[in-house]
Amino acid sequence: MRNPEDAIKKWAIGQNALVAGIASASDIDQLQAEGHRPSDILPSAKSVIVIGSLPFAGTWRIPDYKVVGEVAFQCNEELYRIAYHMADYIESKYGYESLFPPPDSIGNWSPLLDIKRCAEMAGLGSRSLAGEMILHPEYGFLYFAVTITSMPLVSDGPLKDPVCPAPSCVRLFEKIGTTPCMNACPDCLSGTIKDGRIVSSRYDRNRCATRAQSTSPPALQRQILGAAEETNPAKRKMIVLGDYFSRSVKSLSYRSHLDATCMECWRPCPVGMKYRVKK
C-alpha cells in the first residue's frame, strides 16, 4: 500500500496541483514569529502540506500588466480551492484535524502564515533575488497554498542547493553586476552574488506595491483618504467617480488584480522558462 505522504501528494496532483511537498510544522514554528506559527493556527499541527502551480503560459503573452496580474491571480485562487478541499480530504480519509489557513494578510502587510517559508521547508524551492519569491528547480516561480494538519507525516525538508542564482545569472552578474530579474526591476530589487551564491538580497515591498498593485486594497484606502481630504467638491467628485477609483472598487468586488505583482521580474528568469513558452 502506498504511504500516506505519497497518497496525499498524488491526491493533490490529481486535483490539478503541479507539485506537492510536506514540511514539519515544528520546523516552521522555530523560524516564525509568535502569532504566525502553524501551531498558533492549529495547536495540534504536525505537518504542513504545500501545493504549488504555475499560471497559464498564455499569461506571459498578455501585453497589459494589469490583465497579467488578474489572470495569474485566478490560478492562485484555484490552488486555494484545492488546499481547502485537501483539509476535508485528510479529515475524512485519515481522521486528523486539518485546516486551510486564510492566505490573506492580517492588517496591512503581515500574512498569517509565511507561505514562502512553508514552501521552502517542504523542499519546493529556495528564495530568489526576484522579490524573495520561491524558485522551484524545475518549474521556476510557482504559486503556493498550504494545508495544516495534525497528521504526522515525513517531511521533505528544504533543498540542499539553492536554485537561485541560475548558472547563467551568475555569469551575467560577474560580467555586468546584475541578473535578469534585478535588471527588469532595479527599483524594487537589488542583491549581490559571490562564488555563485546570493550574499545579499533586498526587495522593497512598499515600492513594489505602489508600482504593481495599483488597484489593491491599500491603493483603495489611499484613494479614500485622498477623497476625504479633498475640500473642493468638484475634485472630490472626480476622484470618487473617476476611472482609477472605479477600477479599484471593481478590483475589490470581482477579486481581480488585488495582490498580484506585475511579474516583470518573474518573466526573464531562466529557471522554468520552457514552461512559459508554448506554440
Binding site: D40, I41, L42, S44, E91, E97, L99
Partner: peptide, 10 residues
C-alpha cells in the same frame, strides 16, 4: 467546517 478549523484558537 473542518474539525481543524473548530480547534483553532484564532
Amino acid at each position: 467546517i473542518n474539525l481543524g478549523a473548530y480547534k483553532s484558537p484564532m
